[in-house]
Amino acid sequence: MFQTFEKLLRWSTGLISAMALFTIMWLTLIDVTGRKFFDHSVPGGLELTEVLMVVVIFGALPLVSWRGEHVVFDSLDHLIPDWIKGIQDRLVELVSATTFGGLAWLLVLRAQRFAEYGDTTVYLQFSIAPVAWLMAGLLFITAMVHLLFVFFPPRRAGDDQGGAV
Rank of each mutant, 00 (worst) to 15 (best):
H146Q: 03
S65Q: 14
V56C: 06
S12M: 02
L61H: 08
R113P: 08
M144F: 07
P43E: 01
A129P: 05
A18S: 08
Q112H: 12
R10I: 15
A115E: 11
S17H: 01
Q88G: 14
I30T: 04
V145M: 00
L103M: 12
A115C: 09
Y123A: 15
T121W: 00
I84S: 09
S96F: 04
F140N: 09
L52K: 01
L109R: 12
L76E: 11
E6I: 01
L61K: 05
D89A: 12
H146C: 08
G86F: 10
L106A: 10
I128E: 06
V51H: 09
Y117A: 14
W83T: 13
D77H: 06
L9A: 01
G118L: 03
V92M: 11
P43I: 04
L52N: 04
P154C: 03
A143Y: 00
D31C: 04
P153H: 02
A143Q: 05
F114V: 06
L106H: 09
F152D: 11
L61S: 02
Q3E: 15
Q88V: 14
E69W: 06
Y117L: 15
H40R: 15
Y123L: 14
V92S: 10
G45L: 01
V131M: 07
D119H: 01
D77Y: 03
R67G: 09
M53K: 10
T13Y: 10
L147Q: 02
R156T: 03
A18D: 02
T121D: 00
L124A: 04
D89W: 11
S96M: 08
R10P: 09
G86A: 10
Y123I: 15
F152E: 11
L134F: 12
P43N: 04
D82R: 14
L148R: 10
A20N: 05
K7D: 10
A115S: 11
L148G: 05
S65N: 11
